[in-house]
Design a protein around this nucleic acid. Structure first.
Lengths: 245, 245
DNA sequence: TAATGTAACTGGTCATAACCACATCACGAC
DNA sequence: GTCGTGATGTGGTTATGACCAGTTACATTA
Protein backbone atom coordinates (compact mmCIF):
# COMPACT_ATOMS: atom_id res chain seq x y z
CA UNK A 1 0.00 0.00 0.00
CA UNK A 2 2.54 2.59 0.95
CA UNK A 3 3.89 2.84 -2.56
CA UNK A 4 5.91 5.91 -1.79
CA UNK A 5 9.68 6.16 -2.17
CA UNK A 6 10.09 5.46 -5.84
CA UNK A 7 13.76 4.90 -6.53
CA UNK A 8 13.35 6.95 -9.69
CA UNK A 9 12.84 9.80 -7.29
CA UNK A 10 12.72 12.42 -9.97
CA UNK A 11 9.94 14.03 -8.00
CA UNK A 12 10.33 14.85 -4.30
CA UNK A 13 8.71 12.64 -1.73
CA UNK A 14 6.33 15.28 -0.41
CA UNK A 15 5.04 15.73 -3.92
CA UNK A 16 4.54 11.99 -4.43
CA UNK A 17 2.69 11.81 -1.13
CA UNK A 18 0.49 14.76 -2.06
CA UNK A 19 -0.41 13.01 -5.31
CA UNK A 20 -1.37 9.84 -3.49
CA UNK A 21 -3.63 11.73 -1.09
CA UNK A 22 -5.10 13.90 -3.83
CA UNK A 23 -5.98 10.80 -5.79
CA UNK A 24 -7.73 9.26 -2.80
CA UNK A 25 -9.75 12.43 -2.38
CA UNK A 26 -10.69 12.77 -6.03
CA UNK A 27 -11.74 9.14 -6.23
CA UNK A 28 -14.00 9.73 -3.26
CA UNK A 29 -12.25 7.16 -1.08
CA UNK A 30 -12.16 9.95 1.47
CA UNK A 31 -15.52 11.61 2.02
CA UNK A 32 -15.96 15.35 2.51
CA UNK A 33 -15.35 16.45 6.09
CA UNK A 34 -13.86 13.05 6.86
CA UNK A 35 -10.57 13.21 8.70
CA UNK A 36 -7.42 11.85 7.14
CA UNK A 37 -4.94 9.93 9.34
CA UNK A 38 -3.06 12.10 11.81
CA UNK A 39 0.35 13.37 10.83
CA UNK A 40 2.02 10.93 13.24
CA UNK A 41 0.07 8.07 11.72
CA UNK A 42 0.97 9.06 8.18
CA UNK A 43 4.58 9.10 9.33
CA UNK A 44 4.35 5.37 10.05
CA UNK A 45 2.10 4.50 7.13
CA UNK A 46 4.40 5.94 4.49
CA UNK A 47 7.71 5.76 6.37
CA UNK A 48 8.54 9.40 5.86
CA UNK A 49 9.25 12.14 8.36
CA UNK A 50 6.65 14.49 9.70
CA UNK A 51 8.43 17.31 7.86
CA UNK A 52 7.57 15.65 4.58
CA UNK A 53 4.03 14.86 5.66
CA UNK A 54 3.40 18.46 6.59
CA UNK A 55 4.85 19.71 3.33
CA UNK A 56 2.49 17.46 1.40
CA UNK A 57 -0.53 18.48 3.44
CA UNK A 58 0.42 22.17 3.15
CA UNK A 59 0.33 21.78 -0.60
CA UNK A 60 -3.11 20.18 -0.60
CA UNK A 61 -4.46 22.77 1.81
CA UNK A 62 -3.28 25.57 -0.47
CA UNK A 63 -4.87 23.77 -3.40
CA UNK A 64 -8.16 23.55 -1.54
CA UNK A 65 -8.32 19.78 -1.08
CA UNK A 66 -7.85 19.69 2.68
CA UNK A 67 -8.34 21.93 5.67
CA UNK A 68 -6.84 21.72 9.13
CA UNK A 69 -8.33 22.28 12.55
CA UNK A 70 -5.88 22.76 15.35
CA UNK A 71 -6.35 20.12 18.01
CA UNK A 72 -8.92 18.17 15.99
CA UNK A 73 -7.36 16.94 12.80
CA UNK A 74 -7.08 17.41 9.06
CA UNK A 75 -10.19 17.03 6.95
CA UNK A 76 -11.27 16.67 3.34
CA UNK A 77 -12.78 19.81 1.80
CA UNK A 78 -16.17 19.38 0.14
CA UNK A 79 -15.97 19.10 -3.65
CA UNK A 80 -17.27 22.62 -4.09
CA UNK A 81 -14.11 24.10 -2.71
CA UNK A 82 -11.76 21.98 -4.76
CA UNK A 83 -12.49 23.68 -8.07
CA UNK A 84 -12.32 27.14 -9.52
CA UNK A 85 -9.04 28.01 -7.86
CA UNK A 86 -7.88 31.25 -9.39
CA UNK A 87 -4.97 30.19 -11.51
CA UNK A 88 -3.08 31.83 -14.27
CA UNK A 89 -4.26 30.15 -17.44
CA UNK A 90 -4.28 30.87 -21.12
CA UNK A 91 -7.52 31.31 -22.99
CA UNK A 92 -7.17 27.79 -24.41
CA UNK A 93 -6.77 26.19 -21.00
CA UNK A 94 -9.65 28.26 -19.70
CA UNK A 95 -11.94 26.97 -22.43
CA UNK A 96 -10.92 23.36 -21.93
CA UNK A 97 -11.67 23.61 -18.21
CA UNK A 98 -15.14 24.76 -19.13
CA UNK A 99 -15.55 21.76 -21.36
CA UNK A 100 -15.37 23.74 -24.57
CA UNK A 101 -13.06 23.27 -27.54
CA UNK A 102 -10.86 26.35 -27.91
CA UNK A 103 -10.40 27.94 -31.31
CA UNK A 104 -9.08 31.13 -32.77
CA UNK A 105 -9.04 33.30 -35.85
CA UNK A 106 -6.01 35.53 -36.14
CA UNK A 107 -7.00 39.01 -37.31
CA UNK A 108 -3.63 40.66 -37.09
CA UNK A 109 -0.10 39.86 -36.04
CA UNK A 110 2.66 42.42 -36.42
CA UNK A 111 5.47 44.29 -34.73
CA UNK A 112 4.47 47.82 -33.81
CA UNK A 113 5.51 50.60 -31.45
CA UNK A 114 3.76 50.13 -28.13
CA UNK A 115 0.87 52.50 -27.39
CA UNK A 116 1.35 54.58 -24.30
CA UNK A 117 -0.93 52.64 -21.97
CA UNK A 118 0.69 49.38 -23.03
CA UNK A 119 4.16 50.82 -22.46
CA UNK A 120 3.16 51.68 -18.94
CA UNK A 121 1.91 48.20 -18.18
CA UNK A 122 4.95 46.55 -19.73
CA UNK A 123 7.44 48.97 -18.19
CA UNK A 124 8.98 49.82 -21.57
CA UNK A 125 10.79 52.90 -22.82
CA UNK A 126 9.23 55.13 -25.45
CA UNK A 127 9.42 53.86 -29.01
CA UNK A 128 9.90 50.21 -28.01
CA UNK A 129 8.53 47.68 -30.46
CA UNK A 130 6.09 45.04 -29.25
CA UNK A 131 4.40 42.12 -30.92
CA UNK A 132 0.71 42.83 -31.38
CA UNK A 133 -1.68 39.94 -31.91
CA UNK A 134 -5.37 40.41 -32.40
CA UNK A 135 -7.45 37.27 -32.33
CA UNK A 136 -11.06 36.27 -32.31
CA UNK A 137 -11.38 33.59 -29.68
CA UNK A 138 -13.82 30.73 -30.09
CA UNK A 139 -15.36 28.17 -27.78
CA UNK A 140 -16.94 25.25 -29.59
CA UNK A 141 -16.64 27.25 -32.85
CA UNK A 142 -18.68 30.13 -31.44
CA UNK A 143 -17.19 33.61 -30.81
CA UNK A 144 -16.45 34.03 -27.11
CA UNK A 145 -14.15 37.02 -27.04
CA UNK A 146 -11.91 39.42 -28.87
CA UNK A 147 -8.35 39.31 -27.64
CA UNK A 148 -5.56 41.81 -28.24
CA UNK A 149 -2.14 40.85 -26.90
CA UNK A 150 0.96 43.03 -26.65
CA UNK A 151 4.09 41.03 -26.02
CA UNK A 152 7.51 42.36 -25.02
CA UNK A 153 9.87 40.00 -26.83
CA UNK A 154 13.62 39.88 -26.21
CA UNK A 155 15.50 42.48 -28.28
CA UNK A 156 15.41 41.71 -32.00
CA UNK A 157 13.26 38.58 -31.65
CA UNK A 158 9.86 37.97 -33.13
CA UNK A 159 7.22 35.33 -33.74
CA UNK A 160 5.71 34.49 -37.11
CA UNK A 161 2.06 34.08 -37.89
CA UNK A 162 2.74 30.43 -38.77
CA UNK A 163 4.25 29.68 -35.38
CA UNK A 164 1.28 31.21 -33.59
CA UNK A 165 -1.24 29.46 -35.80
CA UNK A 166 0.40 26.07 -35.43
CA UNK A 167 0.89 25.90 -31.66
CA UNK A 168 -2.13 28.07 -30.87
CA UNK A 169 -0.51 28.81 -27.54
CA UNK A 170 1.61 31.92 -27.15
CA UNK A 171 2.63 30.75 -23.70
CA UNK A 172 4.17 27.57 -25.03
CA UNK A 173 6.05 29.50 -27.71
CA UNK A 174 7.42 31.94 -25.15
CA UNK A 175 8.63 29.08 -23.04
CA UNK A 176 10.16 27.02 -25.82
CA UNK A 177 11.79 29.82 -27.81
CA UNK A 178 12.76 32.29 -25.10
CA UNK A 179 12.56 30.34 -21.83
CA UNK A 180 10.06 32.82 -20.47
CA UNK A 181 7.53 31.24 -18.13
CA UNK A 182 4.39 33.16 -17.18
CA UNK A 183 4.19 32.84 -13.41
CA UNK A 184 2.04 35.64 -12.14
CA UNK A 185 -0.48 38.15 -13.42
CA UNK A 186 -2.55 41.13 -12.39
CA UNK A 187 -6.01 41.22 -13.86
CA UNK A 188 -8.81 43.75 -13.83
CA UNK A 189 -12.39 43.21 -14.92
CA UNK A 190 -14.93 45.81 -15.85
CA UNK A 191 -18.02 46.33 -17.94
CA UNK A 192 -18.11 48.02 -21.31
CA UNK A 193 -20.30 48.26 -24.39
CA UNK A 194 -19.55 46.88 -27.83
CA UNK A 195 -18.40 49.25 -30.57
CA UNK A 196 -19.73 48.57 -34.07
CA UNK A 197 -16.55 46.75 -35.07
CA UNK A 198 -16.47 44.63 -31.92
CA UNK A 199 -20.14 43.85 -32.29
CA UNK A 200 -19.66 42.67 -35.86
CA UNK A 201 -16.72 40.43 -34.98
CA UNK A 202 -18.45 38.94 -31.96
CA UNK A 203 -21.74 38.60 -33.82
CA UNK A 204 -23.78 40.61 -31.39
CA UNK A 205 -25.62 43.88 -31.71
CA UNK A 206 -23.91 47.20 -31.25
CA UNK A 207 -24.00 48.42 -27.66
CA UNK A 208 -24.28 44.95 -26.17
CA UNK A 209 -22.62 44.65 -22.74
CA UNK A 210 -19.17 43.10 -22.67
CA UNK A 211 -16.86 41.92 -19.92
CA UNK A 212 -13.49 43.60 -20.37
CA UNK A 213 -10.47 41.84 -18.90
CA UNK A 214 -7.07 43.51 -18.86
CA UNK A 215 -4.16 41.42 -17.75
CA UNK A 216 -0.47 42.03 -17.25
CA UNK A 217 1.55 38.84 -17.13
CA UNK A 218 4.93 38.50 -15.44
CA UNK A 219 7.75 36.03 -16.06
CA UNK A 220 9.57 33.89 -13.52
CA UNK A 221 11.95 36.84 -13.15
CA UNK A 222 9.03 39.12 -12.29
CA UNK A 223 9.41 41.17 -15.45
CA UNK A 224 6.29 42.13 -17.39
CA UNK A 225 6.15 40.16 -20.61
CA UNK A 226 2.61 40.55 -21.86
CA UNK A 227 -0.36 42.87 -21.72
CA UNK A 228 -3.63 41.34 -22.84
CA UNK A 229 -7.02 42.85 -23.35
CA UNK A 230 -9.97 40.51 -23.83
CA UNK A 231 -13.51 41.56 -24.59
CA UNK A 232 -15.82 38.72 -23.61
CA UNK A 233 -19.36 38.38 -24.83
CA UNK A 234 -21.46 39.28 -21.82
CA UNK A 235 -24.02 36.61 -22.59
CA UNK A 236 -21.55 33.76 -22.93
CA UNK A 237 -18.80 34.31 -20.44
CA UNK A 238 -18.65 34.13 -16.68
CA UNK A 239 -15.56 34.69 -14.59
CA UNK A 240 -14.65 32.42 -11.66
CA UNK A 241 -12.46 33.26 -8.71
CA UNK A 242 -11.63 31.69 -5.43
CA UNK A 243 -10.86 33.92 -2.51
CA UNK A 244 -9.07 33.15 0.73
CA UNK A 245 -8.03 35.10 3.74
CA UNK B 1 18.89 45.41 15.10
CA UNK B 2 17.79 41.80 15.29
CA UNK B 3 14.83 42.67 17.41
CA UNK B 4 13.28 39.28 17.03
CA UNK B 5 12.42 36.95 19.93
CA UNK B 6 9.95 39.01 21.85
CA UNK B 7 9.39 37.36 25.21
CA UNK B 8 5.69 38.11 24.86
CA UNK B 9 5.82 35.52 22.13
CA UNK B 10 2.12 35.48 21.52
CA UNK B 11 2.95 35.49 17.83
CA UNK B 12 5.28 32.85 16.41
CA UNK B 13 8.84 33.77 15.47
CA UNK B 14 8.40 33.11 11.77
CA UNK B 15 5.53 35.55 11.76
CA UNK B 16 7.56 38.20 13.58
CA UNK B 17 10.41 37.74 11.13
CA UNK B 18 8.05 38.00 8.18
CA UNK B 19 6.71 41.27 9.58
CA UNK B 20 10.23 42.67 9.91
CA UNK B 21 11.10 41.78 6.33
CA UNK B 22 7.76 42.99 5.00
CA UNK B 23 8.31 46.31 6.68
CA UNK B 24 11.74 46.69 5.13
CA UNK B 25 10.27 45.99 1.73
CA UNK B 26 7.33 48.35 2.10
CA UNK B 27 9.57 51.13 3.34
CA UNK B 28 11.72 50.67 0.27
CA UNK B 29 14.83 49.78 2.24
CA UNK B 30 15.04 46.81 -0.09
CA UNK B 31 14.73 47.73 -3.75
CA UNK B 32 12.77 45.70 -6.31
CA UNK B 33 14.76 42.76 -7.69
CA UNK B 34 17.36 43.27 -4.99
CA UNK B 35 18.37 40.10 -3.18
CA UNK B 36 17.72 39.67 0.50
CA UNK B 37 20.38 37.97 2.65
CA UNK B 38 20.72 34.25 2.07
CA UNK B 39 18.84 31.90 4.37
CA UNK B 40 22.08 30.91 6.12
CA UNK B 41 22.91 34.57 6.67
CA UNK B 42 19.48 35.35 8.04
CA UNK B 43 19.97 32.42 10.41
CA UNK B 44 22.91 34.26 12.00
CA UNK B 45 21.44 37.76 11.74
CA UNK B 46 18.27 36.93 13.63
CA UNK B 47 19.51 33.93 15.63
CA UNK B 48 16.72 31.64 14.49
CA UNK B 49 16.85 28.31 12.72
CA UNK B 50 16.61 27.90 8.98
CA UNK B 51 13.25 26.22 9.49
CA UNK B 52 11.88 29.47 10.86
CA UNK B 53 13.59 31.56 8.18
CA UNK B 54 12.08 29.44 5.43
CA UNK B 55 8.63 29.60 6.97
CA UNK B 56 8.81 33.39 7.06
CA UNK B 57 10.02 33.62 3.48
CA UNK B 58 7.38 31.13 2.33
CA UNK B 59 4.75 33.42 3.77
CA UNK B 60 6.10 36.48 2.00
CA UNK B 61 6.43 34.60 -1.28
CA UNK B 62 2.80 33.54 -1.07
CA UNK B 63 1.83 37.12 -0.30
CA UNK B 64 3.72 38.35 -3.34
CA UNK B 65 6.49 40.27 -1.59
CA UNK B 66 9.38 37.99 -2.52
CA UNK B 67 10.31 35.45 -5.14
CA UNK B 68 12.95 32.75 -5.07
CA UNK B 69 15.36 31.53 -7.70
CA UNK B 70 16.95 28.20 -7.01
CA UNK B 71 20.72 28.57 -6.88
CA UNK B 72 20.64 32.36 -7.12
CA UNK B 73 18.84 33.79 -4.15
CA UNK B 74 15.62 35.36 -2.89
CA UNK B 75 14.56 38.68 -4.35
CA UNK B 76 12.12 41.51 -3.74
CA UNK B 77 9.10 41.57 -6.02
CA UNK B 78 8.42 44.87 -7.79
CA UNK B 79 5.70 46.93 -6.12
CA UNK B 80 3.21 46.13 -8.86
CA UNK B 81 3.05 42.54 -7.78
CA UNK B 82 2.61 43.32 -4.11
CA UNK B 83 -0.88 44.73 -4.40
CA UNK B 84 -4.25 43.48 -5.52
CA UNK B 85 -3.77 40.04 -4.07
CA UNK B 86 -7.09 38.30 -4.36
CA UNK B 87 -8.23 38.17 -0.80
CA UNK B 88 -11.56 37.56 0.78
CA UNK B 89 -12.75 40.95 1.94
CA UNK B 90 -16.01 42.54 2.89
CA UNK B 91 -17.45 45.39 0.88
CA UNK B 92 -16.29 47.85 3.52
CA UNK B 93 -12.70 46.63 3.45
CA UNK B 94 -12.78 46.66 -0.33
CA UNK B 95 -13.83 50.31 -0.39
CA UNK B 96 -11.24 51.36 2.16
CA UNK B 97 -8.50 49.72 0.09
CA UNK B 98 -9.61 51.81 -2.84
CA UNK B 99 -9.32 54.93 -0.75
CA UNK B 100 -13.06 55.45 -0.48
CA UNK B 101 -15.18 55.80 2.62
CA UNK B 102 -17.66 52.92 2.79
CA UNK B 103 -21.29 53.60 3.54
CA UNK B 104 -24.61 51.78 3.38
CA UNK B 105 -28.33 52.23 3.38
CA UNK B 106 -30.25 49.21 4.59
CA UNK B 107 -33.30 48.58 2.41
CA UNK B 108 -34.50 45.38 4.03
CA UNK B 109 -33.51 43.01 6.75
CA UNK B 110 -35.68 40.04 7.61
CA UNK B 111 -35.87 36.30 8.14
CA UNK B 112 -37.34 34.53 5.14
CA UNK B 113 -37.48 31.07 3.59
CA UNK B 114 -34.48 30.66 1.30
CA UNK B 115 -35.21 30.84 -2.44
CA UNK B 116 -34.25 27.73 -4.32
CA UNK B 117 -31.01 29.00 -5.87
CA UNK B 118 -29.87 30.30 -2.50
CA UNK B 119 -30.70 26.98 -0.84
CA UNK B 120 -28.49 25.26 -3.36
CA UNK B 121 -25.54 27.53 -2.73
CA UNK B 122 -25.91 27.31 1.03
CA UNK B 123 -26.54 23.57 1.06
CA UNK B 124 -29.77 23.96 3.02
CA UNK B 125 -32.89 21.80 3.23
CA UNK B 126 -36.19 22.99 1.84
CA UNK B 127 -38.05 25.51 3.96
CA UNK B 128 -34.99 26.63 5.89
CA UNK B 129 -35.08 30.20 7.08
CA UNK B 130 -32.25 32.54 6.20
CA UNK B 131 -31.48 36.12 7.09
CA UNK B 132 -31.97 38.35 4.06
CA UNK B 133 -30.29 41.74 3.99
CA UNK B 134 -30.63 44.12 1.09
CA UNK B 135 -28.35 47.13 1.17
CA UNK B 136 -27.39 49.99 -1.05
CA UNK B 137 -23.64 50.25 -0.84
CA UNK B 138 -21.90 53.59 -1.01
CA UNK B 139 -18.37 54.75 -1.64
CA UNK B 140 -17.71 58.35 -0.64
CA UNK B 141 -21.48 58.81 -0.29
CA UNK B 142 -22.11 57.78 -3.90
CA UNK B 143 -24.01 54.56 -4.85
CA UNK B 144 -21.54 51.87 -5.87
CA UNK B 145 -23.61 48.73 -5.75
CA UNK B 146 -26.75 46.96 -4.64
CA UNK B 147 -26.06 44.05 -2.33
CA UNK B 148 -28.37 41.23 -1.32
CA UNK B 149 -27.03 38.84 1.31
CA UNK B 150 -28.53 35.54 2.42
CA UNK B 151 -27.04 34.28 5.64
CA UNK B 152 -27.44 30.83 7.17
CA UNK B 153 -27.52 31.55 10.89
CA UNK B 154 -27.33 28.90 13.59
CA UNK B 155 -30.73 27.43 14.40
CA UNK B 156 -33.03 29.92 16.13
CA UNK B 157 -30.55 32.80 16.01
CA UNK B 158 -30.99 36.12 14.27
CA UNK B 159 -29.51 39.57 13.89
CA UNK B 160 -31.38 42.82 14.40
CA UNK B 161 -31.37 45.80 12.13
CA UNK B 162 -29.75 47.82 14.91
CA UNK B 163 -26.83 45.43 15.22
CA UNK B 164 -26.18 45.53 11.50
CA UNK B 165 -26.48 49.30 11.32
CA UNK B 166 -24.16 49.89 14.24
CA UNK B 167 -21.27 47.63 13.30
CA UNK B 168 -21.77 47.96 9.56
CA UNK B 169 -19.89 44.69 9.17
CA UNK B 170 -21.80 41.43 9.01
CA UNK B 171 -18.51 39.56 9.15
CA UNK B 172 -17.61 41.03 12.51
CA UNK B 173 -21.06 40.23 13.87
CA UNK B 174 -20.84 36.64 12.69
CA UNK B 175 -17.49 36.26 14.38
CA UNK B 176 -18.42 37.91 17.67
CA UNK B 177 -21.87 36.44 18.14
CA UNK B 178 -21.51 33.00 16.55
CA UNK B 179 -17.76 32.40 16.26
CA UNK B 180 -18.09 31.93 12.52
CA UNK B 181 -15.06 33.14 10.58
CA UNK B 182 -15.31 33.58 6.82
CA UNK B 183 -12.23 31.85 5.45
CA UNK B 184 -12.88 31.02 1.85
CA UNK B 185 -15.23 31.98 -0.94
CA UNK B 186 -16.19 31.12 -4.49
CA UNK B 187 -17.04 34.09 -6.62
CA UNK B 188 -18.40 34.51 -10.13
CA UNK B 189 -18.57 37.69 -12.14
CA UNK B 190 -20.72 38.42 -15.13
CA UNK B 191 -22.37 41.22 -17.00
CA UNK B 192 -26.02 42.18 -16.74
CA UNK B 193 -28.34 45.11 -17.40
CA UNK B 194 -30.13 47.22 -14.81
CA UNK B 195 -33.83 46.65 -14.23
CA UNK B 196 -35.94 49.76 -13.58
CA UNK B 197 -35.81 49.24 -9.83
CA UNK B 198 -32.06 48.67 -9.79
CA UNK B 199 -31.48 51.67 -12.03
CA UNK B 200 -33.48 53.91 -9.73
CA UNK B 201 -31.63 52.78 -6.63
CA UNK B 202 -28.22 53.08 -8.25
CA UNK B 203 -29.14 56.39 -9.88
CA UNK B 204 -28.41 55.29 -13.41
CA UNK B 205 -30.62 54.86 -16.43
CA UNK B 206 -32.57 51.69 -17.06
CA UNK B 207 -30.62 49.15 -19.10
CA UNK B 208 -27.20 50.43 -18.01
CA UNK B 209 -24.55 47.69 -17.83
CA UNK B 210 -23.80 46.27 -14.40
CA UNK B 211 -21.16 43.95 -13.04
CA UNK B 212 -22.87 41.11 -11.21
CA UNK B 213 -20.89 39.35 -8.51
CA UNK B 214 -22.21 36.22 -6.82
CA UNK B 215 -20.28 34.89 -3.92
CA UNK B 216 -20.64 31.93 -1.60
CA UNK B 217 -18.66 32.30 1.60
CA UNK B 218 -17.47 29.40 3.74
CA UNK B 219 -16.63 29.28 7.43
CA UNK B 220 -13.49 27.91 9.03
CA UNK B 221 -15.34 24.56 9.14
CA UNK B 222 -15.89 24.72 5.39
CA UNK B 223 -19.64 25.09 5.71
CA UNK B 224 -21.41 27.62 3.53
CA UNK B 225 -22.57 30.51 5.67
CA UNK B 226 -23.46 33.24 3.23
CA UNK B 227 -24.57 33.82 -0.33
CA UNK B 228 -24.14 37.36 -1.58
CA UNK B 229 -25.22 38.98 -4.79
CA UNK B 230 -23.81 42.39 -5.59
CA UNK B 231 -24.74 44.53 -8.58
CA UNK B 232 -21.98 47.03 -9.17
CA UNK B 233 -22.36 50.15 -11.25
CA UNK B 234 -20.46 49.39 -14.43
CA UNK B 235 -19.09 52.89 -14.69
CA UNK B 236 -17.74 53.07 -11.17
CA UNK B 237 -16.46 49.65 -10.26
CA UNK B 238 -13.50 47.64 -11.44
CA UNK B 239 -12.54 44.20 -10.13
CA UNK B 240 -8.96 43.31 -9.28
CA UNK B 241 -7.46 39.85 -9.16
CA UNK B 242 -4.03 38.40 -8.88
CA UNK B 243 -3.33 35.12 -10.58
CA UNK B 244 -0.52 32.66 -9.97
CA UNK B 245 0.45 29.30 -11.31
C1' DT C 1 41.99 32.37 -26.31
C1' DA C 2 38.36 29.35 -25.43
C1' DA C 3 36.66 25.48 -23.21
C1' DT C 4 36.43 23.05 -18.89
C1' DG C 5 35.98 21.93 -14.48
C1' DT C 6 35.82 22.87 -9.74
C1' DA C 7 34.85 25.36 -5.47
C1' DA C 8 31.69 28.13 -3.14
C1' DC C 9 27.79 29.98 -2.96
C1' DT C 10 22.39 29.82 -3.44
C1' DG C 11 17.68 27.60 -2.40
C1' DG C 12 15.18 22.62 -2.04
C1' DT C 13 14.36 18.35 0.37
C1' DC C 14 14.29 15.32 4.28
C1' DA C 15 15.04 13.26 8.94
C1' DT C 16 14.89 13.60 13.94
C1' DA C 17 13.40 15.51 18.06
C1' DA C 18 11.40 18.47 21.29
C1' DC C 19 7.92 21.31 23.09
C1' DC C 20 3.54 24.32 22.69
C1' DA C 21 -1.51 25.13 22.06
C1' DC C 22 -5.96 23.44 21.36
C1' DA C 23 -9.80 19.77 21.52
C1' DT C 24 -11.89 15.89 23.52
C1' DC C 25 -13.30 12.69 26.74
C1' DA C 26 -13.30 9.92 30.73
C1' DC C 27 -12.88 9.93 35.58
C1' DG C 28 -13.22 11.67 39.96
C1' DA C 29 -14.79 15.24 43.43
C1' DC C 30 -18.43 17.87 44.79
C1' DG D 1 -26.11 15.03 38.26
C1' DT D 2 -22.57 18.64 37.48
C1' DC D 3 -18.32 20.48 37.39
C1' DG D 4 -13.58 20.49 37.04
C1' DT D 5 -9.35 18.38 35.64
C1' DG D 6 -6.01 15.90 33.73
C1' DA D 7 -4.57 12.34 30.17
C1' DT D 8 -4.20 11.86 25.49
C1' DG D 9 -4.50 12.92 20.79
C1' DT D 10 -4.45 16.52 17.33
C1' DG D 11 -2.02 20.17 14.62
C1' DG D 12 1.64 24.32 15.28
C1' DT D 13 6.33 25.95 16.07
C1' DT D 14 11.22 25.59 16.33
C1' DA D 15 15.98 23.67 16.31
C1' DT D 16 19.72 20.92 14.33
C1' DG D 17 21.90 18.72 10.86
C1' DA D 18 22.53 16.50 6.53
C1' DC D 19 22.53 16.13 1.75
C1' DC D 20 20.67 17.41 -3.10
C1' DA D 21 20.38 20.64 -6.99
C1' DG D 22 20.93 24.72 -9.47
C1' DT D 23 24.18 29.07 -10.34
C1' DT D 24 28.25 31.62 -10.59
C1' DA D 25 32.91 32.85 -10.88
C1' DC D 26 37.46 31.79 -11.10
C1' DA D 27 41.32 28.89 -11.85
C1' DT D 28 42.97 25.36 -14.80
C1' DT D 29 43.66 23.18 -19.04
C1' DA D 30 43.75 22.24 -23.99
Amino acid sequence: MPKIVDPNDYTPKYYQLASILREQIEQGRLAPHESIPSERNLEEIYSVSRTTIRQAIDLLVRQGYLYREHGRGTFVSPQKLQKGISELTSFSEDMRRRGLTPGQKILDISMAPAPENVRKHLELAEGCQVLRIERLRLGDEVPMGLQTSFIALPEGQTLTREEVEQTGSIYRLLQEKFHLIPTEADETLEVTLATPREAALLQISEGSPLLLSERTTYSQYRRAIEFVKILYRGDRYRYYAKLTR
